[in-house]
Design a protein around this nucleic acid. Structure first.
Lengths: 163, 163
DNA sequence: TCGTATAATGATCAAAGATAGTCAACATCA
DNA sequence: TGATGTTGACTATCTTTGATCATTATACGA
């Protein structure tokens, strides 16, 4: 059975898909009532599923007339590397891979392979080393992609060997 | 007499045969209850019978709404897996990537990215851990390639962010 | 008009709950 | 007797909940 958090996430995605401008505004307490959960559950969903890494910007206002605004934003090329810190969680790296797929930097196969590589089962290292290695790997991936793009533009004929 | 492990294995195989897309999702605790065994028995069954060697990829999620997903992806090339031991050097992994490229399991882009990932600079771990992680990564790559190939066939239902 | 009290929101954080994983001792089978 | 199977204590991760704090708008009295 899917968790409440999953259901709420799905609902918000649905609203975003319906919206014409990739922005939605909801009321935390209303949503909570609608899904029969405590208000802070909404914060949980937003903080785990609508992160900047996944391509969302969230703003809110308290007090009467308060709201939570969720906006789906595009990915500025150069900002990607900057968003990868010294450590990176599995969730964040999967989010980034999903975005790279959405933005057509990579294809399905690449995402599947990279997802497998950065999974905790594959790395199988104790924290925080695991998250540090994952960050370096994601840097490597994005770095390689950026390089490939540059070469495309300049017209370098697909790198040979390279030993 | 058949062991409990055999019976559970058989049951899971049955579920997989019934499924239309070679994927099943079960709950560890439910299965354990169903077969009157401890939950860790399920892990035993999965780790001994649903290995990559035998053509399965397994993913799971903990917590509320948790599950274990078993996917049949087809048997990997034995000679490929055989080359990946407990440890793998950078040179060996690059050689394997070259071979995968030659045999058209991967394309240039994939090789470039994977080479970057398994380089000692990216992993940046002391030996022998570095070679061990590299071996697991290459194993993950092989499994993911099988998975990706099957996703192509079945057609992925545009899975949204990590659900 | 200004300042303040109050109501209406949303945010944070830590504890509790819900699953699944690991490991090693013990049991059983061939 | 070694290989395979079973068990349970301990661990890791993800979700749910509630107490408490923070912010904003508005009503109201001076």
């Amino acid at each position: 059975m899917r968790s409440t958090a999953d259901i709420i996430e799905h609902y918000l995605h649905h609203l975003l898909d319906e919206s014409t401008d990739c922005v939605i505004e909801v009321q935390r307490s209303c949503l909570a009532e609608q899904f029969a959960c405590v208000p802070s559950q909404i914060n949980y969903v937003i903080s785990t599923r609508f992160t900047l890494m996944r391509g969302y910007v969230v703003e809110s206002k308290r007090g009467s007339g308060g709201y939570v605004r969720i906006q789906r934003v595009g990915m500025p090329d150069e900002s990607v590397l900057a968003h990868i810190g010294v450590r990176m969680s599995q969730a964040d790296s999967e989010a980034l891979l999903d975005r790279l797929l959405t933005e057509r930097w990579i294809d399905e196969a690449m995402r599947t392979v990279c997802r497998a590589i950065v999974s905790r089962d594959t790395l199988s290292l104790p924290l925080p080393v695991r998250d540090e290695v994952r960050a370096r790997i994601m840097r490597g991936v994005v770095g390689a992609l950026l390089l490939a793009r540059q070469q495309e533009v300049v017209g370098v004929p697909s790198k040979r060997n390279g030993g």
